[in-house]
Design a protein around this nucleic acid. Structure first.
Lengths: 134, 134
DNA sequence: TTGCCATATCAACATATCTAGATATATTGA
DNA sequence: TCAATATATCTAGATATGTTGATATGGCAA
């Protein structure tokens, strides 16, 4: 880790339920949505999805990614940084080359976030004639 | 549908593989990433995630959402529109009230998009000493 | 050293998105 | 028909994000 900041890690965090500064449920949920939103933001660009799909086969160095994907050098670097900061990929230096690979924990977090939003079967039907105005 | 445009629907689309205008695999993949990116964009805001989680219990009218969530009227309407255009919620008018509920197909599409990105077990390890420079 | 190469970062600009307030539209009830 | 209400849309400004070209950094080889 050294001096790298702002990299999401998806480690489990536990709180003592009644500790003096334990955040309440609403705050926890809000913080969760912030995290999840950041994760989905990283996934919300077709170029970044292209990069992820290229990494699916295994670790790649930037030079190979650049050959495979039509992106300028600094732009590719920018998108890789975005993915890295979101916790979706990790990087490793080998000599002068940087290698990137998928970070399964990040994808799992995204997967779980969506799974958590899926409605109960009872929740997908319209509820007609519910009085609203008062 | 009438004159509603730009609403994503997630119906299966099939192509004859060798038909004269059948898009090639790369184009199909690119189009898929565009769609998926739009979907993730709709999920990339904590306010919208909050809305979705409120709809998880079942259909809600806008007035109830507005009570439950601290958002100005036009802002709530904006985010609901974003979710609707992404195919994540559907709306229904009942009298003067609009009711919104989750659209399972949209959430499923997001879920599947992430599942499709998950790496093979062999792809998550660094591959050291791969020659790169040439 | 020195120079080269791979990649990251910076600075400037273009574009997209979010937000708030004002206004428009649709529906109901008087 | 009119007024009231719920929600959507519009407008303008603020902020965030993406893109490009230039420059910096870190490692290697001569």
């Amino acid at each position: 880790m050294a001096n790298i900041l702002a990299v999401r890690e998806y480690t489990a965090t536990t709180y003592r339920v009644d500790g003096p500064d334990s955040p309440n449920a609403a705050e926890l949920r809000a913080a969760g949505f912030e995290r999840q939103a950041a994760l989905f933001h990283a996934l919300s660009d077709p170029r970044r999805l292209t990069i992820l799909s290229h990494l699916q086969a295994g670790e790649q160095c930037v030079c190979h990614l650049q050959e495979a994907i039509d992106l300028g050098q600094s732009l590719l670097s920018f998108h890789l940084k975005t993915l890295r900061e979101a916790g979706l990929v990790v990087s490793r230096r080998e000599g002068r080359w940087m290698h990137y690979r998928l970070a399964p924990a990040g994808l799992t977090a995204a997967h779980d976030a969506i799974a958590a939003l899926r409605p109960a079967a009872s929740a997908i039907a319209p509820r007609t004639h519910v009085v609203c105005g008062d």
